[in-house]
Write a protein that binds this DNA or RNA. Structure first.
Length: 940
DNA sequence: ATCCTCCCCTAC
DNA sequence: TAAGGTAGGGGAGGAT
């Protein structure tokens, strides 16, 4: 259940601070000495992509004429200026905000705000826009909204009424209202009429409301009302939101950070780092109280229950038996009773006819009475009969959290919670602290530690690492050992690629027959697949989690539509190819359920978890292997590939151009091998390669790509043996073409395999060969295999050859970078004769080397930077992230220390860092946050 | 030794 | 009446 803290929002800062920043923003605009007019007062724009006039020019116009320019789209951005529509699917954008830059120009020319509607990029809109409703009764706008679209509350606040064509909207004025509306609450008007009622919780009073999962509307109904669902999705959603802000942000500065720096500089040197900790206390309650100031200072709880008398005498299902369920629950979860709140819930929560609705968030005044988040309302009312309950406001939570993130983003995009480094008294400071205050320590772990005689951080500080590892396991022990000393040196990671996707419902599951159950499974499969597609991934493993009524449990639960005491069953299935096809997933899910063979009426909870996720485009590439084999058969009919084509067509997209031939620090070391090469053989591959190389040049990390012939990976039976089982079997099934790949000339020199004896494809001899078994694909010395090889050798002389190695090389080149570590390994062989990048930076010697490098060179040579980049690149591939971070930290420090005025060095460092982030993102799926940074006022 | 799978625990 | 979700980390234990 929920912990005491709050619902996941305890890190999210104050709403009123956010509000203040809006005012400050307006104030800042008003006080601009260069200001020429107030034309755009109250209007803010965000420029998306390339526009005419340019973003810079638009920024200048807005500044000079009283408007606001947002460096990234914010929830209250009035208009988004763009030339083309972005991929709206990605982020559910509000299209009614996208207008052409010409609007700004025309406003300026006419010296007034002209109607923006003719400038909308997306014109296929319903006649009624979601609109701002300043207390207007709904029927006031009947003339324009015969609307079948309900104006969603959340969007309405950000929209501007544009229904009256004749009227030039006084946008500035409206926006002032808008700000006010956001600052107070969208529910103000409702609450005023209700404020006399003690308890304001409302439930869906729609009599047609779906009651169980047998109703097709139940799923969406449930998600709409589930606090836990909202907490989870808001969390993930905001992670993505911050990522987007970070991506959009690019190299722009942080508008408000300058102010902060200015303030800081007046006191000290300004190079110190600041950590802002934002704590959103009682988040749900605080948001709920925006519209109910009269309730401030009272014990308040956010819950679905109406509270009051209604919550002490709830109807109980005739087949429910609270006492029996309580006893069974207590018996089954005895070992969980180290969690005091949970124990108390069981002990006194099931009493009489008390409400079993859970409290999502409660005010300090309520906490003082012993009320906790997650507690049943009935139980809470026993502790505090005067407790007031208020309803959820999910849209409000979202809105406030957006405001918060937007506000913070004006200062930094390194938004992540972390423990402080040791600044001296940290040990003493932490010693008396309760262990469950540390991240990752919950009721279970602290209980375990208590049993080991460890009650607080001080106790753990005195314990050996070995003992902690014994008690908790290796990793958890190590973490606690560090954390209780205030140390957490893990690199901060964000933008991590998702590893699982799931959708679960353990409420309202009541089926009378399998048709109802299967219909729900289809719906849930659909839901989870949508989430999968949304994140552009595909799944290989489908897991079905089923909660089944425990044999001893009463047929109906004490909690209305709850799951009661259950047994949990997990069933999983591996899919041949990663998929995001709803039909495939649904079929698997239905099969798993049939296998589980549970009577539908005994089901109480169902969840679908998709794991072993793969990147959708990587999966596409995997399929290309098969296509490639297919193409090879077509090529039988084509002309032979002239040998000259084999030599390698260098495709360059160089950034580290060698115009400056500075001697390299590392020149006496063996030359690193060039990592890539491109061969053009298949038209299709060449086409898709184009986009890959474009990508690289955009990133600015492309290198001239040439590779000697000897580096072309060969494809042989080992490769095939290592391909994923399913693909391999398919290959076997299509033995006609693949046999040739599976076998190669055994006389090849081990030293220069590709050069001296390139693996050759002989398309014509394959047809005579017998079907292959899987074992045939392993390196074989069997007589039959030798005979076949001999036969092929004889034919080589007269046949046209197709080089499988080229095709594979081409395929590898065509793959996006991030699949290389995984798939490249499968396909290519390490080539031994070419020197590897020397491991200059491994071990401890890197410090000396970097020290010498930075001390000796006034400016770093591109070659050295390039070599350095290769070294760190390898560390990333080899999963030596900790070491890589150490190396980077050291380099940064040395540069700050010895080259504080040399922006060449600063740029070089930043270039390296950018490269690392790119590579991290593509290989690991997330970025790193480097604690150490270049402290230069000139170039930072 | 290393990987995989099935959980449990924790955070939000 | 009531809306008891979602994702990641990692330990235990078995397979290889």
């Amino acid at each position: 259940m929920t912990r005491d803290e709050d619902n996941g929002f305890s890190e999210w800062g104050g709403y009123f601070e956010a509000k203040k920043s809006k005012l400050e923003e307006q104030f800042a605009a008003a006080s601009d000495p260069f200001r020429k007019s107030d034309l755009f007062e109250g209007i803010s724009i965000f420029v998306n992509g390339r526009t005419d006039p340019s973003a810079d020019e638009l920024k200048r116009i807005m500044m000079v004429h009283g408007g606001t320019f947002h460096h990234y789209e914010r929830s209250h951005t009035t208009y988004i200026i763009a030339s083309v529509l972005p991929d709206v699917k990605v982020r559910n954008m509000n299209l009614s905000k996208f207008i052409s830059a010409k609007w700004v120009v025309d406003c300026l020319e006419k010296k007034k705000i002209v109607d923006y509607k003719p400038y909308l990029l997306y014109t296929n809109q319903k006649t009624s826009q979601p609109r701002l409703m300043f207390g207007k009764p709904k029927d006031n706008d009947a003339n324009d909204s015969k609307s079948d679209v309900e104006p969603p509350k959340d969007k309405a606040e950000m929209e501007v009424d544009s229904t009256n064509d004749e009227t030039q909207m006084e946008l500035g004025g409206i926006l002032k209202h808008l700000h006010q509306a956001v600052a107070t609450s969208p529910e103000k008007e409702d609450s005023a009429s209700e404020s006399k009622i003690t308890n304001l919780s409302t439930t869906s009073n729609n009599s047609t409301t779906a009651r169980t999962a047998a109703d097709p509307n139940f799923l969406s109904e449930f998600y709409k009302n589930s606090r836990l669902h909202h907490i989870a999705t808001l969390g993930t959603g905001f992670k993505q939101y911050v990522c987007r802000l970070r991506q959009k942000h690019g190299t722009q500065g942080f508008p408000n950070r300058e102010t902060l720096k200015y303030l800081a500089n007046s006191q000290q040197n300004g190079l110190a780092r600041y950590v802002m900790h934002i704590d959103m206390d009682c988040f749900f309650v605080s948001v709920g109280l925006r519209a109910r100031p009269e309730l401030r200072g009272l014990p308040i709880a956010v819950t679905h229950s109406k509270g009051g008398n209604a919550a002490t005498d709830v109807p109980v299902h005739p087949q429910a038996d609270r006492k029996a369920e309580l006893e069974l629950f207590a018996q089954r979860f005895e070992h969980h009773f180290h969690d005091g709140d949970k124990a108390e819930k069981v002990r006194s929560g099931f009493d009489k006819k008390m409400s079993l609705s859970e409290i999502a968030s409660c005010s300090y005044e309520a906490r003082e009475k012993g009320i906790r988040n997650g507690m049943f309302v009935g139980q809470a009312l026993k502790l505090c009969p005067e407790l007031k309950t208020i309803p959820y406001d999910f849209e409000g939570y979202k809105e406030v959290a957006f405001t918060l993130y937007d506000t913070v983003a004006q200062y930094t995009l390194n938004i992540e919670a972390f423990l402080l480094d040791s600044k001296n008294d940290i040990l003493a400071y932490l010693a008396p602290m309760s262990l469950d205050l540390l991240p990752g320590v919950g009721s279970s772990m602290s209980h375990k530690l208590k049993q080991a005689g460890l009650n607080n951080c001080g106790d753990v500080q005195k314990t050996t690492l070995w003992r902690l590892e014994r008690v908790l396991g290796k990793k958890l022990g190590q973490n606690l050992f560090q954390n209780c000393r205030g140390i957490d040196d893990r690199p901060l990671a964000y933008e991590q690629a998702r590893k699982t996707v799931s959708a679960e419902m353990n409420f309202g599951i009541r089926f009378t027959n399998s048709a109802e159950c299967e219909q729900f499974l289809c719906q849930l499969s659909d839901e989870v697949t949508k989430r999968l597609v949304e994140i552009k991934r595909k799944a290989r493993s489908v897991n079905l989690k089923i909660m089944v009524r425990a044999a001893e449990a009463p047929v109906e639960t004490s909690k209305y539509m709850g799951h009661g005491v259950c047994d949990t069953i997990n069933k999983s299935s591996l899919i041949k190819h990663a998929t995001d096809d709803v039909n495939v997933i649904t079929t698997v899910v239905l099969n798993l359920m049939r296998e589980a063979d549970i009577p539908p009426h005994e089901l109480r909870g169902i969840g679908i978890h998709l794991t072993r996720l793969e990147d959708a485009s990587a999966v596409r590439k995997e399929n290309i292997i098969k296509q490639m084999f297919g193409k090879m058969s077509e090529m039988k009919k084509d002309k032979p590939i002239p040998q000259e084509a084999v030599g390698g067509i260098a495709v360059s997209g160089a950034v580290g151009d060698d115009k400056v031939k500075k001697p390299s620090m590392f020149e006496n070391k063996p030359k690193p091998r060039e990592p890539r090469n491109v061969f053009s053989m298949l038209t299709a591959a060449a086409v898709s390669r184009k986009s890959v190389t474009e990508d690289r040049s955009q990133r600015g990390t492309a290198k001239p790509i040439t590779r000697p012939l000897s580096l072309v990976p060969k494809l042989d039976e080992d490769v095939l043996a290592q391909l994923p089982e399913d693909i391999r079997l398919e290959v076997i099934a299509n033995k006609e073409e693949h046999l040739c790949i599976a076998e190669y000339d055994g006389n090849r020199s081990p030293q220069y395999p590709a050069l001296q004896s390139p693996p050759l494809l002989n398309p014509s001899d394959s047809t005579n060969l017998s079907p292959l078994k899987a074992t045939d694909l392993k390196p074989s010395t069997s007589r039959a295999a030798v005979a076949r090889l001999q036969k092929r050798k004889e034919r080589k002389e007269q046949e046209h050859y197709i080089r499988s190695d080229h095709i594979v090389a081409d395929y590898i080149e065509d793959m996006p970078d991030f699949v290389h570590p995984h798939i490249l390994k499968l396909i290519s062989h390490p080539v031994t004769e070419v020197p590897e990048v020397p491991e200059l930076l491994m071990g401890d010697k890197y410090k000396d080397l970097l020290n010498t490098w930075v001390s000796r060179e006034e400016a770093p040579s591109p070659n050295d930077v390039d070599l350095f980049v290769k070294q760190v690149s390898r560390m990333i591939r080899n999963d030596q992230l900790d070491h890589m971070c150490d190396v980077m930290k050291y380099l940064c420090r040395i540069i700050n220390m010895k080259r504080s005025c040399s922006c060449c060095w600063h740029m070089a460092y930043k270039h390296i860092e950018e490269f690392i982030q790119e590579q991290m993102l593509t290989i690991e799926g997330y970025n790193l946050l480097f604690i150490e940074y270049i402290r230069c006022r000139k170039c930072s």
